[in-house]
């Protein structure tokens, strides 16, 4: 008896699974597996060199009741995220608008703005350390020594250290946001602008009533990616400040790293990582909930 032929839909589904299987396998082995392990280690006393010992909720109790640096690092990270993500959205969007115009050499500007993105963050951090250096830095030379304008003491003042790292991060990552916004801007149908112009809308009204609503899904995407990435800030603080001055740049992941690789408290660090995972999940869910009211999705024509 002949086997029944597969329908086109089923065949496409099988091929679909075949094509995504490398990613699925990679996710299961390299992402989900470690995630499950980290959640489990959070309930143990573990130093990676010896077998873990079950510790119940001890790590979590210590984190929430005794660990001052946990709260300090969490607060530092929250402030950093609060400063960075709006900057990425606003500056990324404005740059995209700028390079989307029909200016001469617009393509060259796009390339220039994107260039820092391909520079390794460690290298960028060292370059910026010299630019922002409060005594011998380029910024001080240009502003204070040449023009007499007082320069903030980035990286050594506890109040200016986070803005310093935000400036560096915006510079090194803005190319990605710009490209995302540029793609969204170029997808806005020109007839909507024409209709707005016929209705007498100026450039600002067109921006507020046409452009922003239509790129709002991209704004949402940039915010979500920004939150997820910036909560995991590590390299810049590790290279530039090692958490100082006065723990003002002791970000959550830097603190977690210290616990794991300086103090060899992997169980504790795993508990910290689990808490960070829950925080990011919560903020992402919250963003999705808020986005239902603020993000405009074009309905496909039926």
């Amino acid at each position: 008896m002949r086997a029944p032929r597969w329908t086109i839909g089923r065949r496409e589904a099988v091929w679909g699974f075949v094509f995504i299987s490398p990613w699925v396998l990679g996710f299961l082995i390299f992402s989900l597996g470690p995630m499950v392990a980290i959640i489990a280690w959070g309930f143990t006393e573990y130093d990676i060199l010896q077998a873990p010992k079950l510790a119940g909720l001890e790590n979590y109790i210590e984190i929430f009741t005794e660990d001052e640096k946990f709260l300090k690092s969490l607060a530092n990270t929250a402030i950093y995220v609060g400063l960075l993500v709006p900057c990425q959205v606003v500056i990324g969007f404005l740059l995209a608008v700028l390079v989307n115009t029909k200016l001469p050499m617009a393509a060259l500007f796009r390339a220039f703005y994107f260039l820092p993105t391909i520079m390794p963050l460690v290298v960028a951090s060292i370059v910026w350390a010299w630019v922002l250096q409060p005594e011998l830095g380029l910024l001080k030379f240009l502003l204070e020594d040449t023009m007499g304008i007082p320069t903030p003491r980035f990286m050594v003042d506890e109040y200016w250290s986070k803005p310093g790292i935000v400036i560096l991060t915006v510079w090194s990552s803005i190319g990605v946001q710009m490209i995302l916004f540029l793609a969204a801007l170029q997808a806005v149908p020109p007839h909507l602008y024409e209709a707005a112009e016929i209705d007498g809308a100026g450039p600002l009204r067109k921006l507020i009533h046409v452009t922003i609503p239509l790129v709002s899904p991209t704004i949402f995407l940039v915010i979500i990616i920004g939150i997820i990435n910036s909560f995991q800030v590590f390299t810049t603080a590790f290279v530039l400040t090692q958490g100082g001055p006065l723990d003002s740049t002791l970000f959550y992941v830097l603190y977690l790293w210290r616990k794991a690789f300086v103090s060899f408290e992997f169980g504790y660090a795993s508990a910290l990582a689990t808490i960070l995972f829950i925080i990011i999940m919560f903020l992402t869910a919250l963003s999705f909930w808020v986005s239902r009211r603020l993000v405009h999705y074009e309905q496909p024509e039926s």
Binding site: I126, A129, W130, Q133, P134, E135, L136, R153, M155, V156, V239, L240, T241, Q242, P245
Partner: peptide
Amino acid sequence: WDNIQGYMDAVGASRTA
């Protein structure tokens, strides 16, 4: 301390000084 702190960085400003 303000006059020293700027030299206590990871890039070695004190050496340069």
